[in-house]
């Protein structure tokens, strides 16, 4: 490329950046000065999750392992691939399995199911590693106590997201894993029909906590893992838990900033 070409191209780029449209989107000049770099973060709602400056030690990969960031990225991957899967999947027992099988053969983006499944496994893994790191650097200590609590809730939601998704392929692995998991609810003290104290809840002689009314029944919408359970898990998996998780992530990220950025020695 000759020098004049270069000048011309730069000229075009510069011209583009002077248009009303460009300036309406990016409200700062090219981020090569301190001021514009600060503005690049401040005037962008996504980048604005970050502060403008951070401690140098907090930048080091060997300190944070970027595990929280990776977890968040995997959550985004799950959202995108999950939406694509939703186009091809119907949460009814006589269709679900076939939908999944057809996906393999007919979907142009045939890898979406793999990405979604392995991404989900990976997210459970990275959220554990993230917690491990936060513990080992003592980052839950004041002033970050509350953000640790938010984190524990996020950990729980990540596991529940994964668990509810486990049922959706409606194959043997799915229903039996969920059967084993939800059998625990049967043994819940007082509100599970096989739990200690369940017989305490009586109306005259009629037990209130039975197979047809205990904690497991409410979770599954039936006495066993059937069509109501599939619908319930689908709604929880695709709508309810993600919405709660996104909300808590917003709190989590906001609090990182408000608590003074990534932790470091006092």
């Amino acid at each position: 490329m000759s020098d004049s070409d270069k000048a011309k191209r730069e000229g075009m780029f510069q011209k583009l950046r002077k248009t009303q449209f460009w300036r309406s989107v990016f409200r700062h000049g090219y981020p090569d000065t301190q001021r514009n770099r600060a503005l690049a973060v401040l005037s962008n709602v996504f980048l604005h999750l970050h502060p403008v400056r951070i401690r140098k030690s907090g930048l080091a990969l060997s300190f944070t392992w970027c595990m929280g960031g990776v977890t968040f990225f995997l959550f985004l991957v799950e959202t995108v691939t999950g939406i694509l899967l939703m186009f091809y999947y119907k949460p009814v027992t006589y269709e679900a399995y076939n939908n999944i099988q057809e996906m393999k053969e007919t979907l142009p983006l045939g890898m979406m199911r793999e990405m979604h499944r392995w991404g989900a496994h990976a997210m459970v893994l990275t959220v554990w590693l993230h917690m491990f790191r936060v513990f080992m650097t003592g980052s839950y200590k004041p002033p970050r106590e509350f953000n640790w609590v938010v984190g524990v809730l996020l950990l729980l939601l990540t596991l529940l997201l994964s668990f509810t998704g486990y049922l959706l392929p409606w194959d043997q692995l799915a229903i039996w894993a969920v059967t084993v998991g939800s059998n625990m609810a049967r043994a819940h003290p007082v509100i599970g029909h096989e739990g200690p104290g369940a017989s305490l809840l009586m109306l005259d002689d009629i037990p209130l906590v039975t197979v047809g009314s205990d904690a497991r029944f409410i979770l599954l919408g039936g006495r066993f893992v059937g069509e109501n359970a599939l619908l319930r898990f689908y709604v929880l998996h695709c709508v309810f838990i993600p919405v709660v998780a996104i909300t808590l992530m917003a709190v989590h990220f906001w609090r990182i900033r408000k608590d003074g950025g990534i932790s470091g020695p006092l």
Binding site: K104, M111, M115, A122, D171, Q172, I175, A177, G226
Partner: peptide
């Protein structure tokens, strides 16, 4: 993630059946 997804297809077992209990029945790994 791309390498993982290209390399290993997501498994799909037999269709769900309330009558056939696999042995062992395991909860999800976590």
């Amino acid at each position: 993630l791309t390498v993982w997804s290209v390399g290993i297809p997501a498994p799909l077992e037999e269709p769900a059946s309330a009558a056939l209990t696999p042995n062992p029945s395991k909860a999800p790994w976590y």
